[in-house]
């Protein structure tokens, strides 16, 4: 069995995983999930300095939990784009040095493809063609995969990402950060038909998304209500807001699938953890007699295991990076 040691440092979290070539995950350590004590009371944050501080320890934990040594590792994988450049560089430099010193091939992985491959962990049989909706704090893209290497971007956000829409509207409602999980939880107690917030970009020919207008619409709505009304109906407002975001995502995905007779849909990224998105997507996909795939909750957020999973095909194709490999912040899927 081939074993891949994978690094993910594209944003806030330092994550290291050991993944088998059958997509079983031997370990997947994410810095923010560790007890604070292991980091001397410091919660891992954005700065690349903290990735630097964490990466040795997270690597050691991942190797220990997987019960492997460097000699058991067949290849090193690392996410190289898109992301925060300073953060990405820590992972890339570390992975390069390690690959060089233990003489193993290095595999560069696009972070967003990694999100998609998080679905392979629970569904190793999943293969294109499929329509993928990748939704996170930084990205909202609808992508059709003809095959593993041949894909086209069908739609993307014109302004805010879906995860950002959750965070920013949560901020306007003074709910705290990160907004996604809080909204998900409170919306369960609310009536989603309480108020109809607008669904943007309904034009027929576009599969782009737009969530920027929702901020204005919510602020406007809130400014017209008194404090008591907002307090009493908060869960209903939140549920109405959540369904506006979710319906935009689901309706465009389903519309494209219907138009093109696609019956396999894959959802990935942090927002794929949202329970209303899961519920609505399952409901709509069953109406077109299709199948929909979601990653397990633990693989929705940024994690090393998905990077390892995405590296497996590349390993067999011998699609290795050389030590000149560099990180880049550019968004999108197209570079790797």
């Amino acid at each position: 069995m081939i074993k891949i040691l994978a690094f993910e440092t594209s944003c806030d979290d330092t994550s290291v995983a050991v993944v088998n070539s059958d997509y079983s995950v031997l370990s997947n350590i994410v810095s923010s999930q560790l007890k604070h004590a292991e980091f001397g009371g410091v919660v891992p944050e954005l700065a690349s300095r903290l990735h630097l501080k964490n990466i040795m320890q997270v690597t050691k934990l991942a190797m220990d939990q997987a019960k492997v040594q460097f000699s058991d590792i067949n290849a090193i994988a690392v996410s190289v784009n898109p992301g925060l450049i300073g953060s990405l560089l820590v992972g890339v430099s570390f992975a390069k040095s390690l690959a060089y010193s233990i003489k193993r091939p290095l595999i560069a992985v696009n972070h967003m493809l990694g999100h998609l491959y998080s679905n392979k962990i629970d569904h190793p049989e999943l293969e294109p063609p499929f329509l993928a909706l990748i939704v996170s704090g930084g990205h909202t893209e609808l992508v059709y995969f003809h095959s593993k290497d041949n894909f086209e971007i069908i739609g993307r956000t014109r302004d805010d990402a879906a995860g950002e829409a959750f965070d920013k509207t949560a901020k306007l409602l003074e709910l705290g950060y990160p907004g996604g999980p809080i909204i998900d939880k409170l919306a369960k107690k609310g009536n989603r038909n309480f108020h109809r917030f607008p669904r943007a970009l309904k034009e027929k020919n576009s599969f782009d998304f737009s969530f920027s207008g929702l901020k204005t619409s919510i602020r406007n709505y809130l400014s017209k209500q008194d404090e008591k009304f907002i307090k009493v109906n908060l869960n209903d407002i939140i549920a109405s807001l959540q369904i506006a975001i979710v319906e935009s995502l689901v309706s465009k995905t389903i519309r494209y699938a219907k138009l093109n007779n696609i019956n396999k849909i894959v959802v990935a990224g942090g927002v794929s953890a949202n329970s209303e998105l899961r519920k609505q997507m399952y409901g709509e996909v069953s109406k077109i007699r299709g199948q929909v795939y979601f990653p397990s909750i633990e693989y929705c957020m940024d994690n090393g295991a998905m990077i390892g999973a995405a590296a497996i095909d590349k390993y067999y194709r011998k699609d290795f990076a050389d030590l000149e490999l560099n990180a880049f912040s550019k968004k999108g899927l197209r570079f790797i």
């Binding site: 992301g83 965070d167 550019k330 968004k331």
Partner: peptide
Amino acid sequence: ENVSSPSFVILNE
């Protein structure tokens, strides 16, 4: 190309 919000990634080029 489309310019979108950099809130999450901090920087777009």
